[in-house]
Computed example of a mutant assay.
Amino acid sequence: MTLPGPARGDLTDAQWALLEPLLPTPAAGRPPSRSKRQLINGIRWRVRVGAPWRDVPERYGPWQSVYDLFRRWTRNGTWARILTALRSRADAAGLITWDINVDSTAVRAHQHAAGAAERGKAGITKRSSPTITGWAAHAEG
């Protein structure tokens, strides 16, 4: 079956040539009725648009087939392996710039940095940032 021409957002021939070798080899048995490229384009359409699976256009095949491939490859880790392989190739080609940003939403202070009470000698409780008047009160008391 030939597709009626690529839809906007479908894989180009160059993208398919890069992706196809990363796909798992089909198991022996009945040949699939839809091409992997057609089903993957359906998955990409659904993820890009955010529509329900039942709204996947017929040009990508039955929505059940598109969903089944997505679900199987999610469960068995195929999508993760494909992403890792593509990311490795892009990094090796210098196409990824790695910037590391750290801010207070990603970093937690140690519990002692929060001014938690600690025990010193003779059972005197002191704070991590005491004031002079506080120490004087403990010394005299």
Rank of each mutant, 00 (worst) to 15 (best):
H110N: 10
R8M: 07
R87T: 15
V56Q: 00
I124D: 07
R127F: 04
P57D: 09
S88K: 14
P130D: 09
R30W: 02
G134F: 05
D55R: 11
A136R: 14
A7N: 00
A114M: 11
A109T: 12
I96Y: 07
A106H: 08
Q64H: 12
N41M: 00
P31G: 06
T131W: 01
T105V: 05
G123A: 13
R8G: 09
W63E: 12
A17P: 00
G115Q: 09
W53S: 03
E140L: 12
W79S: 06
P21I: 00
R34A: 05
G61P: 07
G141W: 00
D13I: 06
W53F: 11
A92S: 09
D13S: 13
D68E: 14
P26S: 07
A113V: 06
R119T: 14
T105P: 04
G29A: 05
I132G: 02
V107S: 03
T12S: 15
G141L: 04
P26T: 12
L11I: 07
T105H: 15
W73C: 11
Y67P: 02
A106S: 10
R30M: 07
A136P: 00
G29T: 11
A80P: 01
S33T: 11
V102I: 13
V49G: 00
M1V: 15
L3Y: 13
I96R: 06
R30V: 01
A28P: 00
W79G: 08
D55F: 03
G29P: 03
T12M: 03
I96C: 07
F70R: 09
I124Y: 05
I40E: 02
R71W: 15
L23Q: 07
I40H: 07
M1C: 11
L18T: 13
T131R: 11
W63H: 15
L39C: 06
R89H: 11
A27W: 02
P6H: 01
W98R: 10
G115A: 09
T125Q: 10
S104R: 14
A114K: 08
L11M: 14
G9I: 08
A7G: 03
A139F: 12
Q64K: 14
R46L: 06
R89G: 15
G94P: 10
M1D: 00
V56K: 01
L3N: 14
R37A: 10
E58K: 11
L22R: 02
A139N: 08
L3C: 05
T131L: 15
A90T: 04
E20D: 11
D55P: 04
N76S: 13
L19F: 01
I132E: 08
P62V: 14
L19R: 03
